[in-house]
Design a binder for these strands. Sequence first.
DNA 1: ATTAGATTTAGAATTGTTCCAAATTCTTTA
DNA 2: TAAAGAATTTGGAACAATTCTAAATCTAAT
Lengths: 120, 120
Amino acid sequence: MTAQRKLILKVINDTCEHMNAEQIYMAAKAEMPGIAMATVYNNLKYLSDNDYIRKIGVSDGADFYDRNIIPHDHAICDKCGGIADINPGGIREALEKSIGSKVTHYDLNVHYICPGCRTW
Amino acid sequence: MTAQRKLILKVINDTCEHMNAEQIYMAAKAEMPGIAMATVYNNLKYLSDNDYIRKIGVSDGADFYDRNIIPHDHAICDKCGGIADINPGGIREALEKSIGSKVTHYDLNVHYICPGCRTW
DNA sequence: ATTAGATTTAGAATTGTTCCAAATTCTTTA
DNA sequence: TAAAGAATTTGGAACAATTCTAAATCTAAT
């Protein structure tokens, strides 16, 4: 664990959930001005490969990183872009039944209008 | 419907499902050598916006395009990268129950080892 | 203290996609 | 059916996110 790696993990754990690489880089830079973007990517890879954090792939835009490694899915607001954790039950079972074999993992991102953005 | 647009739609309908922009470009180029990549992207956007085809966002790599616009999800083999359509039931209901509101849409990509790649 | 291996850094390179402006081609409608 | 306006095509530049590279530096175990 180098100082950089420790800092990046701290940033992810202390700052808000669901930050992307750029945001993590900025937050880390505030404490360690010389840190390089490549170091952030290197460590995000290391940390997610080793289950310290979870990388969430997003098809249209930057991936984000989640300090919560307990399996859960994400609901993304179409208006504000805010991301909320969700825990719908029975998904994995439905998928395994459907494909007839074990699922190694799955990505499920739901789009909706969050309560704050709803107008009625 | 310009000749280019017709060709691109034909390529998607006649060639294999789940092609990415590059593959569609190559197939179109074979019949119309002067066609531009930008035209392919323009038309993929037009065709998916108008429900002729469906765009499938992939977080790590090129998006692909599906001629099947009936809602369904995708199972991606971790070994060969092959993509299969799946139709697990009850997902939308589980999601709406979980977030407590309507889902505008959702992306669900399952990773697994396909029958062809399985060794036991 | 030495040395092999891991990590950091800055910047270049890559990939997939979008943007741009000019040229061309469709589509009205007079 | 010709002129005007709208949409589309083209090639290339621009872009964003990420990965790669190679040299410098650090770390850990002898």
